[in-house]
Design a protein around this nucleic acid. Structure first.
Length: 428
RNA sequence: GCCGGGUUGGGGUAGGGGUUAUCCUUGGGGACUGUGGAUCCCCGGACCCGGGUUCAAUUCCCGGACCCGGCCCCA
């Protein structure tokens, strides 16, 4: 017996049904925001990720050298591929609104909400540097969760990289990326540890107190202005008011709670403006989605400057959250037909009937087992078919068919010619 | 890569250095070859892998694989 590869999942029908439903909601919602779907390759040159990441990342990918000596990697994230696709087409009318649902791979130890293969809902707006694009991206992420039934079960924390950079410089931190890295660990370190690490890094210890007070607090956006010292506020009024505007715009799209949180900086990425993360309200899981503005990744990858904002939403955490809220069993009852046959002669007619009903848009299963009718009905019931059709010598003789509603047990016999009407009235 | 806890039929479990490895469920069949998911009966199906200790290992020891969770990292 050969086992499944570590960290990978098998998905059986009972999981696929709700999973596909979830992806359907993502696709539908994206289209309602007038995003177009694209598909990205599953393999890219490793160099695509070298551009913006250190060697650290390379140890966390499924990478290999192909027969021609090329260093390839199974994509660990969507954004570089999407940017590559965008920048290699010069004829696209901006803004470009794209989404995709790629599988992604990471070579890491599997743990809760994270396996080595997962699917991510990824959406981006290119060529629009405005606050409207920021808001629309957050709005799309939230609308998707709302549509899945998660309204009120999650919230969004936002921050702005430029604001944080100013804040860090203001307290005398010159190594900004180290500053981000430390802030990113805020929730993992104890208050004392964090404080001493921060003080190591910064020069102005008095002002550092201010940052410490700001961190880890969820601040309602309309109170954001009052949290900053007057001088700082004046110098960075534009960034602050942009954040406020984003929040205001997002409320026209979703009721989701949106708060400012200085500890959200999104790792060591390529973000240049707003950054955001969606969390379950109970704080039980990893982030549901995350994203932000990244206006210089185009420059890094293709030498073309392009304004960009986007998010990624993994299926793993979302699945945990949906399951916790009993939203994972999304077995929608569409009408489905099982054709039971009695006698060999009935099978040909059964196939003809099945084809006709399929053309009407329903799923049909033909039972050719020639088991006893009672067993066929039993099987149909346990396969959750909503209706059965019985075809046997009697029906063939009289040119009729018998349709049975498996929920109510009601049964009708009608002429073969009236099939369409019979089906329609039964399925309704 | 590191740390902790696990692993007995498809799923959930009981047990245990030696005999036919327990029970529930799922699956297959029958009672019932033209009318249902009930009931009863029958059948199939497991000790993760390798090494060690031992007369004997599924059981004890060591290693590995995989699973769950955590760290690192977070795209």
């Amino acid at each position: 017996m050969i086992e499944r590869v570590r960290g990978f999942r098998d998905s059986y029908p009972e999981d696929m049904l709700p999973r596909q439903k979830m992806f359907d909601v993502m696709r539908e919602t994206a289209r309602k925001f007038y995003f177009s779907q694209i598909e990205i390759p599953s393999l890219e040159y490793l160099d695509l990720y070298r551009v913006k990441s250190g060697e650290e990342l390379l140890t966390q990918t499924f990478s290999f050298t192909d027969k021609g000596g090329r260093e390839l990697t199974m994509i660990p994230e969507a954004t570089p591929s999407v940017v590559r696709m965008l920048t290699s087409r010069k004829d696209l009318k901006k803004p470009v609104k794209w989404f995709c649902l790629p599988k992604l791979w990471r070579y890491e130890e599997p743990q809760s909400g994270r396996s080595r293969e997962h699917t991510q809902f990824n959406a981006d707006i290119f060529g629009d540097g405005s606050v409207y694009a920021d808001a629309e991206i957050i709005g799309l992420a939230c609308s998707t969760l709302d549509k899945l039934g998660l309204s009120g079960k999650y919230k969004v924390r936002i921050n702005d990289r430029m604001l944080m950079e100013k804040l860090l410089r203001d307290i005398g931190i010159s190594d900004i990326s180290r500053g981000y890295s430390l802030i990113d660990h805020y929730r993992k370190l104890s208050a004392e540890e964090f404080k001493s690490l921060l003080l190591e890094l910064c020069e102005d210890r008095e002002k550092a107190d201010f940052l410490l007070q700001l961190l880890g607090k969820e601040i309602k956006l309309d109170q954001l202005g009052s949290k900053f010292p007057e001088k700082f506020k004046k110098e960075n009024g534009e960034i602050i008011s942009r954040l406020l505007n984003t929040g205001k715009l997002v409320t026209t799209i979703t009721d989701a709670e949106l708060v400012y949180d200085a500890s959200v900086v999104r790792g060591l990425g390529y973000y240049t403006g707003i950054v955001f993360e969606g969390f379950d309200t109970a704080g039980e899981f990893r982030s549901i989605f995350g994203g932000g503005r990244y206006n210089n990744l185009g420059q890094l990858i293709a030498g073309t400057q392009v304004e960009a904002v986007g998010f990624g939403m993994g299926d793993a955490v979302l699945e945990l959250l949906l399951k916790k809220n009993n939203l994972w069993v999304l077995t929608e009852k569409e009408s489905s037909f099982g054709v039971c046959t009695v006698g060999d002669e009935a099978i040909l007619t059964a196939y003809e009937l099945a084809t006709k009903i399929r053309r009407l848009g329903y799923a049909v299963n033909v039972d050719t087992s020639q088991a006893s009718l009672s067993n066929q009905l039993k099987k149909a019931a346990s396969n959750s078919l909503t209706h059965t059709i019985i075809i046997g010598p009697k029906e063939l003789r009289d040119n009729v068919l018998t349709i049975r509603d498996m929920n109510s047990g009601k049964q009708f016999t009608g002429k073969m010619e009236d099939l369409d009407n019979l089906i329609k009235s039964m399925a309704s």
